[in-house]
Design a binder for these strands. Structure first.
Lengths: 168, 168
DNA sequence: GTTTGTGCAAAACCTTTGCATAACA
DNA sequence: TGTTATGCAAAGGTTTTGCACAAAC
């Protein structure tokens, strides 16, 4: 009925500019904005910098909370707007978590996620299941359903939380 | 880096009481409510009946819209409450679609979903990737991440919409 | 008769929108 | 200088909550 075999590999959550300095990475994002005709504002640079310095999955709420200290008066609407722009520019990926929350991810290549049910942290999975992958193709002949994209979402306990549980 | 092979099979969207009459199927749901000490109200019976007669994925909004004709004065809050109860009773499954919408699914066994990007319809996939599946186990040794559940969400074009596109 | 659920309304929550002001290029 | 973005406030949609009344057991 169903045979499954998947090799999944977890890679560090970092931007594609992993080897670059923080400043260089930010500048690359800036360039992408310029290339698409977007203006460079302090707010946009602040969001960019935040993701470079802290390359994790964040909600709009979390992003606003952190930047509010640095950029007083920053509007929530601006954060949402900026996130849309950065998504358009290919700098961020919008990720719909289970539970309905929307996260933004500095990893923009095809990958999947695993979320720890204890600490809530989201990990990147290096499982490139974008179109043309065997994962997608497998479903097609069986239904006449032409698969365009696949999202795999794992939930469980991360190594750190397992360690804590083992001690406690 | 990653080898993927998955056999995916689509099965009809029906409750586990597939072979039963409508009335019998509803009564089974009623029994599950009683077994857990829940009271049986006309509203709860109405939601149950709706899912038996129309075993598809529905949002709370859609459910309310349909039942409002039958049960005038039905409150939205009651629908949400009832859906929670039915989920607790194991009669419905809460499904978080990509895009943030919450659907309720009368299929409660482990399965996944494929959504047509044209008509929006959600199809059930018979890919039993619950704990102990190879899909889940695969991720574990690589990170120390203990997988408890996996959700696979496919997006593409269903057979019907492909046919329409071919004609148009 | 007691416990539980319903309905109403309002609140909470996240996200989007409109418009005047301010800032970028 | 002209275009675009920001900030504010308010609206939008979905879901949750509090309380009096009503219904199920």
């Amino acid at each position: 009925m169903s045979a499954t075999c998947l090799a999944v590999m977890v890679i560090p959550t970092l931007t594609s500019e992993r080897m670059m300095s923080t400043q260089t990475a930010v500048e690359e994002g800036v360039e992408r904005l310029r290339a698409l005709g977007y203006k460079l504002t302090p707010q946009r640079r602040a969001v960019l910098t935040l993701f470079v310095e802290q390359p994790t999955h964040m909600t709009a709420q979390e992003i606003w909370s952190q930047l509010e200290h640095i950029e007083p008066g920053l509007s929530r609407a601006t954060v949402y707007n900026t996130l849309d722009v950065l998504e358009q520019a290919g700098v961020l990926l919008k990720v719909q978590a289970e539970g309905g929350q929307t996260y933004y991810d500095p990893r923009v290549d095809a990958h999947h996620h695993a979320q720890c049910t204890r600490c809530g942290h989201i990990f990147d999975l290096d499982l490139p299941a974008q179109p043309s992958s065997a994962l997608l193709a497998a479903a097609t002949p069986l239904v006449g359903f032409s698969v365009e994209s696949a999202t795999l979402w794992l939930r469980g306990t991360c190594a750190a939380c397992q360690a804590h549980a083992g001690v406690a």
